[in-house]
């Protein structure tokens, strides 16, 4: 039963991810990406990681993709970027194949060791909170700072020159 759902959601996640990268239209890709996120969230839920599953939906599928769609739709269809495939593809494929091989190797190795059993409350909100806000609170705060710096940097880079542009545009 569980295996069935695992393969269902896992398979769907892979398929939707493939569809996402093969669509030429940004909005269509975004929709498929959302579907992919939902499948991943389902996988998390099956691992009893309810909090992470919900966050996956709330943050990624819900918030980020809504922003993404909004901006894409608002600005209209972006110009199609011609990828410089000739030089990039051999390099990318080599790296990908190497990574995949490493992954497969690790997976085949770990299979014999078996998974350590975890308690039911492992993925609960309390558990996650304790890990983040008690055990690793310094790293958590530092990460927060880093993101803040990134946001400020993005604002600085994206700001418009002051001359000749009406105030208030694009603040939505």
């Amino acid at each position: 039963m569980e295996a069935l759902f695992f393969y269902l959601f896992g398979g769907l996640a892979v398929i939707t991810a493939l569809v996402t990268i093969t669509r030429r239209d940004a909005v269509t890709s975004a929709f498929w990406l959302i579907a992919c996120f939902l499948n991943v969230a389902a996988l998390f839920a099956m691992l009893s990681a309810q909090f992470i599953a919900v966050m996956q939906i709330l943050i990624y599928a819900g918030a980020i993709m809504v922003f993404f769609l909004f901006v894409t739709m608002f600005l209209g269809e972006p110009r199609r970027v011609r990828l410089n495939r000739g030089r990039a593809i051999p390099l990318i494929s080599t790296v990908t194949v190497l990574l995949l091989a490493y992954l497969l190797m690790r997976i085949t190795n770990t299979q014999h060791r078996g998974f350590p059993s975890i308690s039911d409350s492992y993925g609960s909100v309390a558990m996650v909170s304790r890990k983040l806000l008690v055990d690793y609170v310094f790293l958590f705060e530092v990460t927060g700072l880093l993101l803040l710096v990134a946001v400020i940097g993005a604002v600085y880079v994206a700001r418009k020159p002051r001359t000749g542009v009406g105030e208030g545009e694009g603040h939505v």
Partner: peptide
Amino acid sequence: LDVGILYLLAITSLSVY
């Protein structure tokens, strides 16, 4: 669900789609 109320937020955030 352990995350009950967060689930509500998650699903409503999807309702726009």
